[in-house]
């Protein structure tokens, strides 16, 4: 009987205060009745093993107690698919690119590798974990609040079918978007070919002085002048085709994905080749360099950061292109494309 007492005691722990005594008394009676019946059936008092088997069949104390509790959840089945989608989105937009940047730093930047040897290598990942957990917690709390509001709204019945969003054709590029693409790419092309330049205004405490040329930028321009000009030109042509024929084809999406994949490679090769320079720029910025040296350091560091962001955006666009092709194929095979 000690086993039954322990079992009931474990159930009691999880029950709501105002139900504890009542539920336990009823369960105790049920178990005793069952044991008595078994004893009559077997013709002898149940031993510990038989009582244990009987209790095991009833389920763990936590499971039994759980059935007496009201059903509760932070995010319910209606919001859960959106919750999962947002978590994936957060992972895709921030966590995966941040992780890739960390991997690229390890592979292409020897100074980073040298400065973060041994356990220090994972310090960079430590902050990533903290951000990931914070992001997860914030999204979960947001959805938990949304769940409560949605439950209240559903109870009031204030839902209007007319407010549902229009069906979006994911394989169709809006013409406005194609037009914007054409204008933006043409501007970038003219700038890249030297048609105009942006005045760089940098001043520190009101003092300005001629800056030494950026080796990183000059190298990037020299190495990839022609390929990038071609890529931008192809982008203009693609946007023009999209404008005339807005329904995407795998060839167009694939071409875009190849361009998007090439850009990060060019950027990472250049950043890798100038890793020491970038590191020196960081040191100069943080170690209190002054005057033109500090301005040049800020410029080089900002340039490296901007190129890194462009590479991440291109990678994201490339992955999106590949997913689009998969979706196109899926729609084709289902006869809906």
């Amino acid at each position: 009987m000690d086993l039954v007492e322990r079992y009931l005691n474990a159930i009691r722990f999880w029950l709501p205060k105002n139900q504890k005594a009542d539920v336990i008394a009823e369960l105790a009676e049920d178990i005793r009745s069952q044991i008595e019946e078994r004893e009559k059936e077997f013709g002898h008092p149940l031993d510990e093993e038989e009582v244990s088997a009987l209790l095991k069949k009833r389920g763990s104390p936590f499971t039994v107690a759980g059935r007496f509790l009201p059903q509760r959840h932070l995010v319910g089945p209606q919001l859960y698919p959106i919750y999962e989608f947002v978590l994936k989105l957060a992972a895709g937009i921030y966590l995966i690119p941040a992780f890739l940047v960390w991997v690229c730093l390890l592979i292409f930047v020897p100074s980073y590798r040298a400065a973060h040897s041994g356990a220090a290598l994972f310090q960079g990942l430590g902050s990533l974990w903290t951000t990931a957990l914070t992001m997860f917690a914030m999204i979960t709390v947001g959805f938990a609040v949304g769940e409560r509001l949605q439950r209240q709204s559903a109870a009031r019945g204030d839902w209007n079918p007319r407010r549902l969003p229009a069906v979006r054709n994911v394989l169709r590029i809006p013409r406005a978007s194609s037009l914007a693409d054409i204008v933006a790419n043409l501007l970038v092309l003219v700038w890249w070919l030297g048609g105009f330049s942006f005045p760089i205004v940098l001043s520190l405490n009101g003092a300005s002085a001629p800056l030494p040329p950026s080796l990183l930028w000059r190298d990037f321009q020299t190495r990839y002048f022609f390929p990038i000009a071609v890529f931008i030109g192809v982008s203009v042509v693609l946007a023009l085709i999209n404008l005339v024929r807005p329904n995407l084809t795998p060839l167009r999406v694939g071409t875009r994905a190849v361009i998007d994949a090439a850009a990060p490679i060019m950027i990472f090769v250049t950043l890798g080749a100038h890793a020491e320079e970038i590191r020196a720029a960081w040191t100069a910025m943080t170690a209190g360099a002054t005057g033109p040296a500090k301005l040049a350091a800020i410029r080089d560091w900002s340039l490296a950061l901007t190129l890194g962001i462009i590479a991440a955006a291109c990678l994201f666009s490339c992955v999106r292109g590949v997913l689009r092709i998969k979706r196109w194929r899926a729609l084709q095979s289902s006869g809906r494309a």
Binding site: V23, E26, S33, G59, R67
Partner: peptide
């Protein structure tokens, strides 16, 4: 009471385990 109810249901081919029956009664 709970146990006899459970037995009566089982005898009529409607077996319900105690984990379902008691919360339902409540």
């Amino acid at each position: 009471y709970g146990y006899t109810l459970r037995k009566a249901l089982a005898e009529r081919g409607m077996a319900v385990d105690e984990g379902t029956l008691y919360p339902l009664l409540r």
